[in-house]
Amino acid sequence: MNIAVLSGKGGTGKTTVSTNLALALKANYIDCDVEEPNGFIFLKPEISEEKQVKIDYPFIDYKKCVSCGKCVDVCQFNSLAKVKEDIVLFNKLCHGCGACKIVCKYDALTYKKREIGKIEFGKARGIECRKGLLNISEPMAVPVIRELLNDLPENINLIDCPPGTSCNVVTSLKYADSAILVTEPSEFGLHDLKMAVELVKMYNIPFGIVINKDDGKDNIIKKYCKNEKIDLIGVIPYNRNSAVLYSNGEVLYDDLEHKNLFDDLSNKVKEVLKWN
């Protein structure tokens, strides 16, 4: 079973919920926030393997190229451009669709591979841990996320999604059987939560909401869940102790008060997500 943990915005505590719920559920932890993965800071797994992620990109043989511009016309991603009589390649914009090679009548285009990131495999506290890491300056995270989510381990997998509702999140959700949405009781939190809810509904999978930094009041998130008939899995109170533990890179689950909290959350997750 693959559970996606996502948030409409950054900074809600998505990784905090993911890492600690992974321990409570004894689930494998998969960090898909490949542009800024930080779950390993807390779980501290022992890395056993690394794997490069490579993608195809076109290579132009200028001895054969006649600068007809057919490849430029067919490219939907603007990775090829005709500048005067030359064809210029912007390889970081290339999606590797192969259209340029197909339309080239002079066999001037072939494909090569280049590395855009890597995947790290490890174990911590009896669970498998994986994370993707996109190389600096690379614009496309999706190929790394796809490779990371390919052939996931058996049992339960907690997928720590990228923040927001971009194509990176959409790619992560394609592998999910259910979802947990993490938010905070603020106007910004509610605004972006609504977008995340609409995204998850498109996949027709069970989901529920966790409120982080909860103020203990009947706040706007609780009212929204009630009005929209969305399951509220639980809340994480706003307190100084949580912030101190987090800022020191410690796992909240090691603290008895937080352990009880996340154990309760894990039981509610099984109830809300129609556990099988």
Results as ranks from 00 to 15, higher is better:
residue 157 N to D: 12
residue 97 C to D: 15
residue 85 E to M: 05
residue 200 V to S: 05
residue 23 L to F: 01
residue 216 G to H: 04
residue 162 P to C: 01
residue 199 L to I: 07
residue 236 I to F: 13
residue 59 F to L: 14
residue 116 I to Q: 05
residue 197 V to T: 12
residue 134 L to A: 08
residue 3 I to G: 04
residue 20 N to E: 01
residue 236 I to W: 07
residue 253 Y to M: 02
residue 186 S to E: 08
residue 125 R to W: 04
residue 68 C to R: 04
residue 172 S to W: 04
residue 28 N to T: 05
residue 264 D to S: 13
residue 75 C to K: 00
residue 175 Y to V: 13
residue 45 P to G: 09
residue 183 T to D: 12
residue 69 G to D: 10
residue 4 A to H: 07
residue 210 V to K: 03
residue 133 L to I: 15
residue 187 E to F: 11
residue 40 F to T: 07
residue 207 F to M: 05
residue 142 V to M: 06
residue 57 Y to P: 07
residue 188 F to Y: 15
residue 227 N to S: 13
residue 10 G to Y: 12
residue 203 Y to M: 06
residue 71 C to E: 10
residue 159 I to P: 10
residue 85 E to P: 00
residue 249 G to F: 10
residue 273 L to H: 07
residue 2 N to G: 07
residue 153 P to N: 06
residue 133 L to C: 08
residue 106 Y to V: 15
residue 267 N to P: 00
residue 223 K to H: 08
residue 174 K to H: 05
residue 156 I to S: 05
residue 276 N to C: 04
residue 85 E to K: 12
residue 31 D to M: 09
residue 214 D to Q: 08
residue 216 G to Q: 04
residue 138 E to C: 08
residue 19 T to L: 01
residue 258 H to Q: 13
residue 68 C to L: 08
residue 70 K to E: 13
residue 131 K to E: 14
residue 136 I to P: 00
residue 142 V to S: 11
residue 124 A to N: 02
residue 29 Y to P: 00
residue 82 K to C: 11
residue 20 N to L: 03
residue 223 K to M: 12
residue 257 E to K: 02
residue 202 M to N: 04
residue 181 L to T: 02
residue 151 D to L: 04
residue 203 Y to S: 03
residue 245 L to E: 11
residue 270 K to V: 14
residue 205 I to T: 06
residue 39 G to L: 04
residue 203 Y to K: 03
residue 74 V to C: 09
residue 103 V to F: 06
residue 253 Y to E: 01
residue 2 N to M: 06
residue 95 H to D: 14
residue 68 C to E: 11
residue 38 N to I: 08
residue 195 M to E: 11
residue 144 V to F: 04
residue 233 I to C: 06
residue 200 V to P: 02
residue 239 N to L: 02
residue 142 V to F: 13
residue 111 Y to I: 12
residue 137 S to W: 09
residue 255 D to K: 01
residue 26 K to D: 15
residue 179 A to W: 02
residue 231 D to A: 13
residue 216 G to S: 06
residue 147 E to V: 01
residue 100 C to L: 11
residue 1 M to T: 13
residue 109 L to P: 00
residue 17 V to D: 08
residue 143 P to V: 15
residue 96 G to T: 07
residue 106 Y to W: 12
residue 83 V to Y: 15
